[in-house]
Amino acid sequence: MSTTKTVERVTVLINPLAGHGHAPVAGRKGVARLRDRGVTVTEIIGTDADHARTLARRAIDDGTDALVVVGGDGAISIGLQAAARSGTPIGLIPAGTGNDHAREFGVPVGDPVAAADVIADGEVQESDLARITLTDGAVVWAGTVVASGFDSLVTDRANRMTWPKGPMRYNLAMLAELTQLRPLSYRIELDDATVQADATLVAVGNGRSYGGGMQICPGANKTDGLLDVTVVGFGSRARLVRLFPRVYKGTHVDLPEVQTYRSRTVRLQCEGITAYADGDRVGPLPVTIEAVPGALHILSHTPA
């Protein structure tokens, strides 16, 4: 569903580290364009993620017309925690390395002026969000994919590494995890079935992609009230390496070792595995993930 909102004043949250430090440049261009369009802009920069969430929630409570996030999927995740179910729309000025949220909603990537025009035009789309509940009762909202298994082990390792910097660190972490590849024993509880699987990874998608366009859940529809579950069964290292390029086109789901499911609620259990959502660490499994219809309002030109 699409509505039009008059956008007169917005709060802009900038992640200065996004896109290897390019976010402030994109932010300046986007903010200048918003002001050219007659929009009053208040800028906020948190000292850390918790502080940024507090500032964003305060802006929403104070009645900002929109919360605009400048950065990548990690920064957008901060905005989601503040804006979920609030009715206040989020606007995106993509400035990260992945930008999966922006691609999902058709927001221009690499053009902060065009992204600012989307915000000023005021077309609001409704979208589902995934609500993740940890064993301690903590709740995290996710817009794209909840990842667990091989990919989360790689991210765990990369986060522990101090060298090298940049994408190469992730590549080295992936090579290291490939040498230790092992079956992961999952219990996956769906609405109408329970699946036991020795898997390489399990991804739960509200959206289709993560990691900068990897369509791990290619059939996901962010307005159907359901989550898509992709289970990659355990296989050899060579098989996993052959599967990897197909993820960018979403054709991996046609392989016999890949199973897909659809469910409103998903509970994942696997000892020693951490869940990540929108690229950020959520916490150890087990977690319960639920599709919440209409939890997100987002400024977009593309119907959600």
Rank of each mutant, 00 (worst) to 15 (best):
T3E: 11
T4C: 04
R9I: 01
T11K: 04
V12F: 07
I14Q: 04
L17E: 05
H20G: 09
G21D: 07
G21L: 05
H22C: 07
V25W: 10
A26K: 08
G27D: 08
D36A: 15
G38V: 12
V41W: 13
I45A: 08
A49W: 02
D50I: 14
H51F: 08
A52V: 10
R53Q: 14
R53H: 10
T54S: 13
A59P: 09
D61A: 14
D62V: 06
T64Q: 08
A66Y: 06
V68W: 09
V69W: 05
G72S: 08
D73I: 05
G74Q: 08
A75F: 07
I76R: 04
S77G: 13
S77M: 09
G79W: 02
L80Q: 03
L80C: 05
Q81S: 12
A82V: 10
A84I: 11
R85I: 06
S86E: 10
S86K: 10
G91V: 07
I93R: 07
G96H: 03
T97G: 04
T97N: 03
N99W: 07
D100T: 05
R103M: 09
R103P: 05
R103Y: 09
F105R: 01
V109F: 10
G110Q: 13
P112Y: 11
A114T: 14
D117F: 14
G122H: 13
V124G: 12
V124K: 11
Q125D: 15
S127H: 07
D128M: 12
L129R: 11
T133L: 15
D136R: 12
G137H: 13
A142T: 10
A142Y: 00
T144P: 00
V146P: 02
S148Q: 02
V154N: 00
V154K: 00
N159F: 00
R160F: 02
M161Y: 02
K165T: 06
R169Q: 00
R169W: 00
L175P: 00
A176W: 08
R182D: 00
L184F: 04
L190F: 06
L190G: 05
D192W: 08
V195G: 05
A197V: 11
T200H: 01
G207F: 03
R208V: 09
S209A: 12
S209R: 02
G212K: 02
G213T: 03
M214N: 03
K222G: 07
T223P: 05
L226Y: 08
T230D: 07
V232N: 09
G233A: 13
S236T: 14
S236M: 04
L240M: 10
L243D: 01
F244C: 03
P245L: 06
R246I: 01
V247C: 04
V247D: 05
V247K: 01
V253K: 03
L255T: 13
E257Q: 15
Y261A: 11
S263H: 15
R264A: 15
V266G: 10
C270H: 14
T274D: 14
A275M: 12
Y276H: 15
A277K: 07
A277S: 14
R281Y: 11
G283R: 13
P284V: 12
A291G: 09
L296Y: 06
L299Q: 04
L299W: 04
T302A: 07
P303I: 08
A304K: 02
A304E: 01
